[in-house]
Simulated scan of single mutants.
Amino acid sequence: MIKKGDFVKISYTAKLEDGTVIDSTDESVAREHGVYEEGARYGDIVVVVGEGHVLKGLDEDLEGKEVGYKGTVEVPPEKAFGEYDPDNKEVVSITKFSERPVPGQRVRIGEKTGIVEKVIGRRAIVDFNHPLAGKKIIFEYEIKELIDKPEEKVKYLFLIYTGRELVPEIEDGRVVVEVPRDATFNQYFLLGKFTVVDQIFKHLPEVKEVVFTEKFERPEEKQETEAKEESSEGKEEAQKETEAKEE
């Protein structure tokens, strides 16, 4: 049975009560229903049950299920995007915008994001409720796999919190992770890695230490390594072509 703290791989499609698809882990479904996001990662996702990686209603429904489960759960507003608050609106001067706002436009005012509801003269009414506030969300989902290997758990924690696919090494309670060169000064990665460390210690009690390393090569040695890799790839492609012709 799935329980809190388990790492599970799932797929899902989320709809409104009228059947409108609002999200999906399946790229073809997202494209078909006009909710595809350029640059977004599609395919099965891994979540840690109870950590809020998906909406609360879906997160809670995972508990007690088994790998292979396929089903539907109706998530009420209070366990989705919250109830709609008619008072969560503000009248904002159009001087606060870089260009004249129009109804339906998504805008950011200070630390808040909202939707322009109306524009009256030199004032705009901005609704700061989530676009799906007050809506019941229906999830059709499947539990694909239970992740058990510590290395896999660490890998997915990095993917969840930093967006990076890293390959950790674990030995004698010590996790070693090589930091990519382009992530060294990436603010999102720098902030996310501390959350990953906290999650590692929380969910992998056998880990006593987490070490981050950086690797630098001499330019000429790096070029030699890349040349060897390209040569190896070229040989593999030539071999595949030869085998294809023989067939």
Rank of each mutant, 00 (worst) to 15 (best):
M1H: 09
I2E: 05
I2T: 05
I2P: 02
K3D: 11
K3L: 05
K3P: 01
F7T: 01
K9P: 00
T13F: 11
L16C: 09
E17M: 14
E17F: 10
I22C: 07
D23K: 12
S24N: 09
D26Y: 13
D26G: 07
S28M: 15
S28T: 15
V29E: 13
E37M: 13
Y42P: 01
D44A: 15
D44V: 04
D44R: 09
D44P: 13
V46H: 01
V47Q: 03
V48Q: 07
V48S: 08
G50M: 09
D59Y: 07
D61T: 13
E63S: 11
G64L: 07
G64N: 06
G71M: 07
P77I: 09
K79E: 14
E83G: 10
K89T: 12
E90M: 08
V92K: 04
S93R: 10
T95Q: 13
T95H: 12
K96S: 13
K96E: 14
F97K: 03
E99D: 12
G104I: 03
R106Q: 12
V107D: 09
G114I: 06
G114T: 05
V116H: 03
G121P: 01
R123Q: 13
A124S: 09
I125S: 03
L132P: 04
K135T: 02
I137K: 04
I138F: 05
F139H: 08
E140W: 08
I143T: 10
K144L: 15
E145I: 02
I147D: 02
D148V: 12
K149M: 07
K153F: 05
K155C: 00
K155N: 02
L157M: 11
L157W: 01
L159Q: 06
Y161H: 09
G163S: 08
R164S: 01
R164P: 01
R164W: 11
E165W: 00
L166E: 02
L166R: 00
P168I: 00
I170W: 03
V176P: 02
V179L: 00
V179R: 03
V179K: 09
D182T: 06
N186E: 15
G192R: 00
K193M: 08
Q199C: 02
I200H: 03
H203G: 06
H203E: 06
P205G: 06
P205V: 05
E206W: 05
E206Q: 12
K208W: 07
F216N: 03
E217R: 12
E220N: 11
E221P: 00
E221V: 11
Q223M: 14
E226W: 06
K228T: 07
S232D: 14
E233D: 12
K235R: 15
E237T: 12
E241D: 14
K245C: 06
